[in-house]
Design a protein around this nucleic acid. Sequence first.
DNA 1: TACACTCAACCAAACGTTTGTTTGAGTTTT
DNA 2: AAAACTCAAACAAACGTTTGGTTGAGTGTA
Lengths: 199, 199
Amino acid sequence: MHSANPKSKTEILKIAIPLFAREGFSGISMRRLADEVGFNAASLYHHFPDKETLYIATIKYAFADKAQRLTEPLTMSAPPRERLKLLITRLCQQTHDDPDFSRLVQREILKGDEKRLELVAKEVFQNMFQGISELCRELGPDYDAHLLTFSIIGLVVYHYQTAPIRLFLPGGKAEHNDPEVVAHHVTALLLHGFRPPAG
Amino acid sequence: MHSANPKSKTEILKIAIPLFAREGFSGISMRRLADEVGFNAASLYHHFPDKETLYIATIKYAFADKAQRLTEPLTMSAPPRERLKLLITRLCQQTHDDPDFSRLVQREILKGDEKRLELVAKEVFQNMFQGISELCRELGPDYDAHLLTFSIIGLVVYHYQTAPIRLFLPGGKAEHNDPEVVAHHVTALLLHGFRPPAG
DNA sequence: TACACTCAACCAAACGTTTGTTTGAGTTTT
DNA sequence: AAAACTCAAACAAACGTTTGGTTGAGTGTA
């Protein structure tokens, strides 16, 4: 009984994720990737027909199951404000722990291929987006739910996106990357705006 | 008095901005850039010693004077809330009108070269950052000014950054890119949090 | 047990193309 | 005439990809 061995395939993808995330599609050659895996460049073509297929497979692999993890805090039964706190905390942890995911999403948006963006939107973000939107309709019924949803995500994602440059600007500290610190800040800002209650 | 003719040089840079912004450094070849300019590839080497120098010149050219325009609304004498509204409105307009600037900043952060990030931070963003930070200390004295400053910028920048994918998510409309709509939304959220006053 | 056979996995070498860059000679401008 | 500018042609290196294998574990037959 012969079956395609998925081990090497996913091992290639695991190594490809940070490479493509940091250097981009045209920034990583097949030889460079093969070197990192410990293969000859030709061996990559045994598992994938060409570079673009390998890249798309890398993205799909990096995005797999992310949708579930992101929607998890939304399914809990708790007061809206508690669900918001939980969501933001989880979002901060996730974004902090897996920066390559954010980078790959960023690069997909920068490339701007509509078909691929539509796929990513529907398969990765749609569930989380709708969950947050419903929460927004409860907590901020006077706002546009679409705008507010992206504001919540943006407050978290943009913060970690700009981490490398924030250290060079006044007041930047390493502890500003602590997910709990960020989550507390974002939650307070969303709930109360510029004038938070004491504590 | 002989000085290098800056005309061709800046014409090259003007054309290089959108190309590098959309495709990245390794995504644009010297031949491709020369074609767009209407030159032979070799001619580029009369104006710039190599590709990297050309790229850095492109960034500097794209970033020039941006610092001034961004700080302009901060110098006005008006109540803090008015200055905030003005700042956010201008930030939305600027980000909307010049998407390539945001893209180049994004790519610089993605690359993560510390020396170049330090340069960009100090020469492009420092003034604006400090101005917003002072405004933050007036409007939201209970917050960390550094975190709050990045929250303000992030609310605007992330919104336009994600424009290409927002259309594929529920509730996305073209009018969500209107700077006035975005400015109104962001200002209300910052001032009041989830529960804005009527109107 | 031994033998022949299959097939996924891997690699060395080479393919044609594209890359960044250089050269040298021509054209335009001053 | 001198300086600034442009180009066709060529360079080595790196690129994505193909070719033609070798290997070793699994399977069926005797």
